[in-house]
Design a protein around this nucleic acid. Sequence first.
DNA 1: TTTCTAAATACAATCGATTGTATTTTTATT
DNA 2: AATAAAAATACAATCGATTGTATTTAGAAA
Lengths: 348, 348
Amino acid sequence: MKFIVSQPNNITIHDIAEALQINSSTVSRALNNSSRVTQKTKARVLKKADEMGYQRNLLASNLRKSKTNTIGVIVPRISRHFFSSAIAGIEEAAYESGYRVIICQSMEQFSREKDLIETLVANRVDGIILSISMETTNAKHLESARVKGTSVVFFDRHCDGTNYSKVLNDDFQGGFDATEHLIKQGCQNIVHFSGPQQLKIYENRKKGYQQALKKNGIPYRSELVFNSKLMEKDGVENAKKILQLPLKIDGIFSANDISAIAAMQHLKKQGIQIPKDISVVGFSNEPSAAVIEPALTTLDQSGRKIGQKATEILFEEINNKSVLHKPKSIVIKPSLLQRSSTQRASDH
Amino acid sequence: MKFIVSQPNNITIHDIAEALQINSSTVSRALNNSSRVTQKTKARVLKKADEMGYQRNLLASNLRKSKTNTIGVIVPRISRHFFSSAIAGIEEAAYESGYRVIICQSMEQFSREKDLIETLVANRVDGIILSISMETTNAKHLESARVKGTSVVFFDRHCDGTNYSKVLNDDFQGGFDATEHLIKQGCQNIVHFSGPQQLKIYENRKKGYQQALKKNGIPYRSELVFNSKLMEKDGVENAKKILQLPLKIDGIFSANDISAIAAMQHLKKQGIQIPKDISVVGFSNEPSAAVIEPALTTLDQSGRKIGQKATEILFEEINNKSVLHKPKSIVIKPSLLQRSSTQRASDH
DNA sequence: TTTCTAAATACAATCGATTGTATTTTTATT
DNA sequence: AATAAAAATACAATCGATTGTATTTAGAAA
């Protein structure tokens, strides 16, 4: 069964102008509520536009104005709690300033990230907020944005030595706090699950771990640092490695919750008691962290605040294109959420 | 410290044409690899374009072609596992067909949903894939899309009596399976956490629940159905209500995992044993469902498949604009993931 | 070499809205 | 009523790419 569809309505300002026997520039100004048009004419235009079912073509408008009032956001995966809450913060701040947000995910692939940047630039977004993929090692792929003068602000995962502003989590402090917390709970042999080393965030979390050990007089042993992509399976692998170590491990600081939780599940299956035998700290405060038993101690990154701040800075830069400000670098402290995975009985 | 920024490069095909002393139409065709241009000229154009740092302006291109090769997706929240996996499926299918995807979240607000639709239409996306907010009661706000001839496909949460294609989860079956599973585990007094009733999905899950009771000779009692928005706090509230009921409840079927998990946590705190005292089934297979103890039995909706299917149908409709096909309605069965929250000791 | 055809390129209109300038209309002033 | 000033509207160019048609060029056949 097929019907011929009624032709799509493609009313333009010219059609309205013709219907009212006035000029399309007046229609345009009326629709934009310009002071150069009488109230009376505005009313006539608005009424006719409504009658005719007019809908502005933003492609044409944006082309003419070379401004889209849109910013693009690229994150590795929207499903991660930290990223989706950062996006919420970005949307909030953008909405206040009358901007739209285009959300994109790189799926941790460099090639996709590059492609997305080019598409956003080709669509003339006014700015880009970016948290890089695990495969990204430098900022060369931002060249297309730079060439077009599109402002870019990093958040959380960033590249080093670039001339872009960034809003970062204080990963060093987070790593330090996590580790020192474990030490204060009595842990001595603490394993660290780290991520891809080209990402500053993992480097810094590790440095915090090292510093906390040092400050507390515990020697750093590189064999206790496990590098991986911190996926679920990596957590399980890491847990297996721990059980095979000659040394009796009594603490884990994982650079993310996903692998911490996977490790906990595996360890529990093997009869290890948490926190009694091994205490665990994660990073990011995923929803699951509050659900697992014992509830996972973790670092909350207030993604919302980071997203808002990144957006503010982006707008500053968009509105100050003519002058180049020294790139800003803002660091936001994560807060340690102490939960049962580190609550030794002795504390009671 | 301020510097004057180098002017943004705004090279157009006209600049390339001038540099090569040829016409811009030839440049355009060369860049689009048209057969009307010699290999030699194409090579010259490509080289020069690269040299000059040319980047196509998609606003202009799309305006002229009145085609954006972009589809918009609107979901209530990207952070929900079902939606982010549906988006993954959509992006996969779209990418294969050379389309870009714009992801938007309504945050469960009708006004935002309406606004997003209008913006997408104004930006002339080629189609929209939509899962409505909890506040949405009908499809009137899709008028702007209909007027412009923009194809729309619903998935999961849809409106009734509309002329749009939809890809749905078999919510009735899911509700039925969940409830019957509880009954088979020996539950007799089963509470159902339902969602906003204007949403078909919750209506259908409830109908499945009723049908399973009926089939198994258990009388339906409306006082055992709790309506809410199924947020975390609602789960806690519902759990409290259960504890206050005169009847001894031995099973819960929640229309989503979020509230099921919140309820479990509260019940456990009150000393209720799950599944021994009360068995619980959720819906959606959120990551936390596998993490809570006991692991939550739930219905997996294969969001990825639903997303892919919705995209396929959307493309069919985009490519067949001239004829109106009868709207399709595809139903995909969810699968019951049996986990410990319903594993009665007697089963062992 | 001339002529014809096909291939390559140039010309110009177009997509729909915006905006600086020019023109007309209205209002105020004398 | 005449004139100046202000307000409202019209005109036309423009944003950057695409595309139907016209023209030029190159190659083949006579």
